[in-house]
Simulated scan of single mutants.
Amino acid sequence: MTLPDASNDPVGAVLRALDLVPDPGQPDVFEGLSLPQPQGRVFGGQVLAQALLAAGRTVPDGRLPHSMHGYFLRPGDDSAPIGFAVERLRDGRSFSARRTHALQAGAPILSMIASFQEQQPGIEYAESMPEVPDPEQVASALDSLGHVDHPMARFWAQESAFDLRHVDGPIYLRADPDSPLGRQSVWARARGPVPDDQLLHRALLAYACDQIMLEPVLRRAGRPWATPGLSMASLDHAMWWHRDVRVDDWLLFTQSTPSAQGGRGLGAARVFDRSGTLVASIAQEGMVRVPD
């Protein structure tokens, strides 16, 4: 297996990484590759998306993920393949539950449990999307970092599969002095078309959100990504899909952070499509350590 060059085809590279290969000798076992990262560690959103897709390969047709809870256990090596072992916990009349372990060198780097459901009628309501500028009116990461010659800047601005546009201004290089509560709104969209596969779109939403879920913690602490000595890592991730989603159309993440303590911070997000429909809710806790 080989991956396209992310600098030339970022969406194609991600789609290829998410195209898992089944193990012919073991049922419900798959293998996938990792996209190279500037720091050499597997990107958390990638392994989340892969684990969800592996689980989705084992459920009855017509059932889509509605919730997922995962723990990041070890840093992964982006130069080595990842194995995904799926455990079939239960298949009910409407719901299916699966546990997926992502493995490298025989040790789990992620453990995830997900629930899938058939489409069914029921009570219907949702919160409204806040009023924000349209994405075309908001500067992109390329606008902010295109002039910076640094591996992380190139990743955010050019090699990332998603175009990120911060309504409140980015914090890549400078802190935000005007956000004491750490709230932010970010438009996101894949940089190219994605096949019409709802499981894939939901997995890609998990992939994309890991890039920004802990940003409110930095914003509230008055720290930019460029803080010298900053150390961050995802610890656990919870996600609920409320409705169908398309990641190749603009999505708005409205984010906040209720708490940080003990070198950890909690980020929360609600995700709306461009029409204002609430499509997902997300929470992630991560290690956030800064120098004294």
Rank of each mutant, 00 (worst) to 15 (best):
N8R: 15
N8Q: 15
P10L: 03
P10E: 02
V14G: 13
L15R: 00
R16P: 04
P24H: 10
D28Y: 09
V42Q: 09
V47P: 08
A49D: 06
A54E: 04
A55V: 09
L64N: 13
H66R: 14
S67Y: 03
Y71S: 05
R74Q: 07
F84C: 04
F84H: 02
V86G: 10
L89E: 15
G106P: 09
P121F: 12
E127V: 01
S128W: 10
M129G: 14
Q137F: 12
A141R: 03
L142P: 09
L142C: 12
M152R: 15
F155V: 15
E159Y: 15
I171S: 09
I171T: 15
A175S: 14
Q184C: 03
V186L: 00
A188Y: 01
V194H: 07
V194Q: 04
Q198H: 12
R202Q: 14
A208W: 09
C209I: 13
D210E: 06
L214R: 03
A226E: 08
T227G: 03
T227V: 07
S234P: 11
D236N: 04
H237D: 04
A238M: 07
A238D: 11
D244P: 15
F253H: 06
R264D: 01
G267Q: 01
A268L: 13
R270G: 00
S275Q: 08
I282P: 01
